[in-house]
């Protein structure tokens, strides 16, 4: 049953592409202010899980609740209209691996587009908030630049600000630093750490073990479409319960001990 005290409640979600079962019976909950890091080898279904949460992919089975409201299906058990689904999606911010900024709009316009066009909020208010968000991610001077003229790190900070401009209840990150040059990863992680610290509710798919270790409240370890392990980061990294997790940590997190966090 839906647990309204949780921001996100994923209950028994499964998804298959043809013969391939990508997610099998995934269940977890995220409380307000939590940062859950989703780890797992390539192809384990991490992106698919995020895309199921806001119904970019339609799950084959299971339910997803956002603060107690089921996503994708109405109370009567029928699939939502595009309009209803869109309204729920505006409450979930998403940050993409390849930024996915809108290329025809300036940085400031990227932040203001959905709040004005979709949420129908007054543009003066949206603009003030967008300017404040740009200041927060350190890009006030880029407000009139087009995305193509920014570095990867700057693009991703715009991507985060754009998601925050929706005042979302939940932020989803899909490998937000994987497409960045190593020297640009830090500036994005700084912003994400700050959000985690401020109590933003986040689900972060990442290969940045350093970030997972010190910013996550909980680790969700996925392997072949199943949640194999879920634990606080201290326990997950120091005493993983499963052999799969142990191997994974050895492969990816070996660098953490040396102070680096890239894989």
């Amino acid at each position: 049953m839906a647990d309204g005290s949780k921001v996100l409640d994923v209950a028994g979600v499964s998804k298959r592409f043809g013969d391939l079962e990508v997610l099998s019976d995934i269940s977890f909950q995220v409380a307000k202010g939590e940062t859950v890091c989703v780890l797992g080898p390539s192809g384990s279904g991490k992106s698919t899980l995020l895309r199921c949460i806001n119904w970019l992919e339609r799950p084959d089975a299971g339910q997803i609740y956002l603060t107690g409201t089921e996503i994708g299906v109405t109370g009567a058990g029928i699939v939502m209209s595009d309009r209803e689904l869109s309204r729920l999606r505006t409450r979930i911010g998403m940050v993409f691996q390849h930024f996915a900024l809108w290329p025809h709009l300036t940085v400031l316009q990227n932040l203001m587009e959905a709040p004005i066009q979709v949420q129908k909020r007054p543009s003066a208010e949206v603009r003030d908030e967008a300017l404040a968000l740009l200041a927060k991610v350190g890009l006030s001077d880029k407000r009139d630049a087009f995305p193509a003229k920014l570095s990867g790190g700057q693009k991703q900070r715009v991507g985060i600000a754009r998601a925050l401009a929706m005042r979302p209840d939940l932020l989803l990150f899909d490998e937000p630093t994987s497409a960045l040059d190593p020297e640009l990863v830090g500036e994005v992680l700084v912003v994400m750490r700050e959000l985690a610290h401020e109590g933003m509710t986040m689900v972060v798919v990442t290969h940045e073990m350093g970030f997972a270790r010190d910013a996550a409240t909980r680790i969700l370890f996925l392997d072949r479409g199943r949640v194999v392990e879920t634990a606080p980061p201290e326990r997950f990294f120091s005493a993983p319960e499963t052999e799969r997790a142990r191997q994974f940590i050895q492969r990816y997190a070996g660098h953490v001990a040396n102070g680096g966090c890239r894989t």
Partner: peptide, 9 residues
Amino acid sequence: EAGIAFGFS
């Protein structure tokens, strides 16, 4: 996709 995720339809 970002457009869809941000509530455009």
